[in-house]
Design a protein around this nucleic acid. Sequence first.
RNA 1: GCCGAUGUGGCGGAAUGGCAGACGCAACGGACUUAAAAUCCGUUGACCCGAAAGGGUCGUGCGGGUUCGAGUCCCGCCAUCGGUACCA
Length: 869
Amino acid sequence: SMSERRKQFPFPEFEPKWQQLWLERQTFHAPNPEEPGFDPAKPKFYVLDMFPYPSGEGLHVGHLEGYTATDIIARYKRMKGFNVLHPMGWDAFGLPAEQFAIKTGLHPCVATVRNVERFKSQLSKIGFSYDWAREINTTDPGYYKWTQWIFLNLYNSWFDLQKNAARPIEELVATRRQEFPHETEEKRREFVDEHRLAYVTEAPVNWCPELGTVLANEEVVDGKSEVGGFPVVRRPMRQWMLRITSYADRLLEELEPLDWPESIKILQRNWIGRSEGAQATFRIDGLDDSIKVFTTRPDTLFGATYVVLAPEHPLVDRVTAPTQRAAVAEYREKVSAKSDLERTDLAKEKTGIFTGGFAINPVNQEKIPIWIADYVLISYGTGAIMAVPGHDERDFEFAKKFALEIRYVVEPPTPAESCFTGDGVARNSAFLDGLTTAEAKRRIIDWLEEQGSGKRSITYKLRDWLFSRQRYWGEPFPIIWRNGRHEALRESDLPVVPPPLDDYRPTGTIEPPLAKAKAWITLSDGATRELNTMPQWAGSCWYFLRFVSPDETSRFVAENAECYWMAGNETRNRGRGGVDLYVGGTEHAVLHLLYARFWHKVLYDLNYVSTIEPFQRLVNQGMILGQDNQKMSKSRGNVVTPDKIVEEYGADALRLYEMFLGPLESTKPWSMSGVEGVYRFLARVWRLAMDEDQEGEWQLSSVLGSVELGAKQQKVVHSTIKKVSEDLESLSFNTAIAQMMIFVNEFTGAEIRPVEAIRALLILLSPFAPHLAEELWWRLSIRFTGFEGLACEQPWPKWRDEFLTEDEVEIVIQINGKLRDKVTVRKDLTKAELEQVVLASRKVRETTRDKSVRKIIVVPNKLANVVVD
RNA sequence: GCCGAUGUGGCGGAAUGGCAGACGCAACGGACUUAAAAUCCGUUGACCCGAAAGGGUCGUGCGGGUUCGAGUCCCGCCAUCGGUACCA
């Protein structure tokens, strides 16, 4: 096997050597503004990876693609003269960590420490230039103290619609007191609690019996838990929610200017799901009450033939006629027992039941039946719809199944047995007749508003964020309960440390595991602690801020440092700045990235941070598939771990191959022979400068020399500098490496190898293959120039255009667009001169002997196309 | 269904509207070697003509279009992958 063979270059010796030296010299430590060694003249660059969950499985090569890319950029930017913040840490709370602990029987604390060690040692062997002095762990009390503190800020804030921003809760209390001076303390408190950004509500939630916890909508995939794939059912429970919906518009608008992939922006927009329409009020026949429905097609109001309430709608009991009571109760029972999976699976077949009640259509006073059906969701819009089966697929299906009337109110004429959902012209709609859909919408909304039976309305798919979990391994809430009311702890009470439980498994009931810590629950004054914990996402919502000042004890982030690393040279409040480059997988497109933006905006509103957005530029690395072209997974047995690659080919070869496989963003399969390819390339670089003597010892090559470069060599050197520099700016790592291969191919054949050219290559190579670059740089320095510092500390070279072109250029000659000939001519011939040369060429003369030239297109220094009849 | 991405040699992939296939892998040939490995030097899209030198035709998922010129731009399809789904 490879490992028994002699290595083509002695990376096992020099890779650990340089890693240790970088650590000892703190080469990659980025000082903060007040620290010694900080250079205020340099611009900042914050380049961040999505920090990992230290799972029990360790890293595989797929994780390392993004890390390698950011590391190359970090090293490149340092050489370009930036102060670079490039940190790494551990997102160690949450379900995966806890599931692992339960599986192995190891306490999560112990397992986490062990997993972190494993991850860190894996990363250390790859030569990443992280500033390890900034390492953070979300499970550190010194960290989650501030996660809890941010929660307190959410709890103690409300969303001011006028200002479109979060404000301290005291402002609301004061205003309320002024407006309603005689309101009881009790009432006022209720009102205030209803406006907090963190609030408690009893609502149907996603309960996963297997995991013993509730989950956010985002964590439920196809009716199963995203973690583990266990069934999820809906049940009402008292839970903590975060009012992310208040930020829906800002999350949409402030997304626009960001330098993110358009596809990710679209995912976020769809997730927020803003839709414009109207609310219309249908009086209930025989009752002094009404049903509000939301519709995006108010122009079809005249086509409404029935109304549907969600089974959970609060008005169901009131509208239900005595004769239907039993049937309705039975239907509701059946629906509530359904899991989400069943609900989606059965989506093809619509179900529902008539309540016996009737609603009055506000436009024509018509009495139409009220049904309940689970195709109407309580959590969207008003939880009730007007059904227009002539112009809505779902209503049409339902109407057909239950033989309800179908009425067409939009031209073009719709064939029977179908519905038309497009735009057209209103008909059978009284005063709307003849109006286009857009006009009719405007007209009917105005009319509804005049009549007081409706209004313009905007609805979002985005729901408030279910923020509590019934788990042990998460941040406890900084909340206590007294007389059935929640109360915030003070900042001085933080951190709230979880009790040291031996049995931390889910209780199997809705009661969280923290309930088992009897002594911990009850405080001396009789108050009891909140038993839920925060979800996995809490810690990762703000970790990029903690990296800025990880040891700060008096604040979640040091003010000056935040201003420097996040806002940089941008003036406060302009909304620019933030993390300059954020690289991670698409799987976080709507979870982490939406939550983190939300928290950041709250912190901005409360004046704690200087930018409205946390991540200025986002790049998604593509997935790396196994050699079998399948997703890497343990069960498929196609997982490639970095450890083995590092051992056999070295860290540099691993790094280089990660980048050489293809464009960063695309999905691509791993190939071991591809690794060998870049390994061979690195060995060629090594042998460019090194020879083996009789004893097999490596020594500087005897054909190295300080010689002038030939024109062709100069051209290769400078075009390599240019190509690598430009490709790094656009993150086109694969083509940058290809150019360095061209460089090496050129100089391998040289009789005397010019030291200056090799030194230039080593600088360019150093972000990619830092160990090899460092080793050769050092060896060449000793022999030729004396020590001039580390390779990774050299200034990035500049190319000179005058070396890029030669005196002569090759001109492609096309006839009627087809390649027919080539001529070599002096550079910068005029169009007229070039035309003469082309017309005089053999091929063109042969062709034009019996054909006439209609036109000649000349592209100077490049091409000429002769068009003939 | 809807949204997004992708489609180029045997393979991974290159190509500001201007020589399609850079660079690498694999394969084949040669040098070195007692031999092998490693290394170094070559060849390598398909097809056709030619003894050779050389020449020609086709070719970037499919069908159209714009252009002197299209992998690249426009229109219409197909396939694969990913996301999402009763959102009124």
